[in-house]
């Protein structure tokens, strides 16, 4: 089986700081792969490199065998690799529904000019987008707030809305940066089921998350970063018993590795 995503020697330096150093791993089709590591380990930087929001200093990312690093982010999104953001990032002056409808951009069959002229294709697009948006919102438990302006929604809904926007782009690979941040235990467990459901629809998931219980529960495999270096890669069971991982997390009571 060839890998869907291949990360080869990926390195990102900010001045003298190596945020990500020589990371190499593979992501298989339809798996959930988590990237964990202490604060500042380089997880978000790794995601920005994969989604091409940042250019690597060295190394490359290959998607379906094709090199995608160096391409503009919207082109990488068009190819099927879509990221979400660690900080809550939404179109805050639009309603939840408008957020998700506009995020269907890549599904558009009509051109911009077609949309301007209101051609039949454009109107069909618009109908399809609304239907699909309603379905996504319902799935993520946002159905009853879809007409609220996003800036007025509580934090938990905004995290879900961020995921909804990513899903609307109908990606092959979805990169979720701390999707469960700020959620309580019950909300997290619900969200874990949702993310599983997304994978079951055929979307490969890369996840950065600090909530170790959630990570151990949801992941097929885990990659561990520490100070930008990959220190381990394996199944949740392997990671839990890995010496170097335990060491990296040692002395951090709040970051207990869930053993």
């Amino acid at each position: 089986m060839t890998a869907l995503l291949e990360i080869n020697g990926l390195t990102k330096k900010f001045g003298g700081l190596t945020a990500v150093g020589d990371a190499s791993f593979k992501v298989n089709d339809k798996e959930i792969l988590s990237v964990i590591g202490p604060n500042g380990a380089g997880k978000s930087t790794l995601f920005k490199l994969i989604s091409s929001f940042l250019r690597p200093t060295h190394g490359e990312v290959r998607f379906n065998g094709e090199r995608i690093s160096g391409l503009a982010p919207h082109i990488v999104a068009r190819k099927g690799v879509v990221r979400t953001f660690q900080e809550t990032t939404i179109f805050k002056d639009m309603t939840a529904r408008q957020n998700v409808v506009v995020a269907h951009h890549l599904q558009s069959k009509a051109s911009l000019l077609g949309h301007y002229a209101g051609t039949l294709t454009a109107r069909r697009d618009e109908i399809d987008f609304h239907e699909s948006a309603a379905e996504i919102l319902e799935y993520l438990g946002l159905g009853h707030v879809q007409n609220e302006v996003a800036r007025n929604l509580p934090h938990g809904y905004l995290r879900a809305l961020g995921i909804a926007i990513g899903l609307a782009a109908k990606p092959q690979v979805l990169l979720l940066d701390e999707p469960f941040a700020g959620m309580n235990h019950d909300e997290t467990m619900k969200a874990v089921e949702m993310v599983r459901g997304v994978r079951d629809r055929g979307i490969t998931i890369l996840l950065v998350e600090h909530d170790m219980k959630a990570v151990m529960k949801i992941s097929d495999r885990i990659v561990v970063l520490n100070f930008g270096q990959m220190i381990a890669e394996g199944t949740p069971a392997e990671i839990q018993s890995n010496e170097r991982v335990i060491e990296a997390y040692l002395g951090r009571e709040d970051q207990e590795i869930g053993i």
Binding site: A72, H74, A77, R78, F85, F91, M94, V102, H105, D125
Partner: peptide, 21 residues
């Protein structure tokens, strides 16, 4: 039209807009 909605998406968050293609 959709063009306007896309313009609004730019106004509100360019990074997010490029993340959805």
């Amino acid at each position: 039209s959709r063009v306007g909605h896309l313009c609004r998406s730019l106004q509100q968050n360019e990074e997010l807009a490029s993340s959805i293609g």
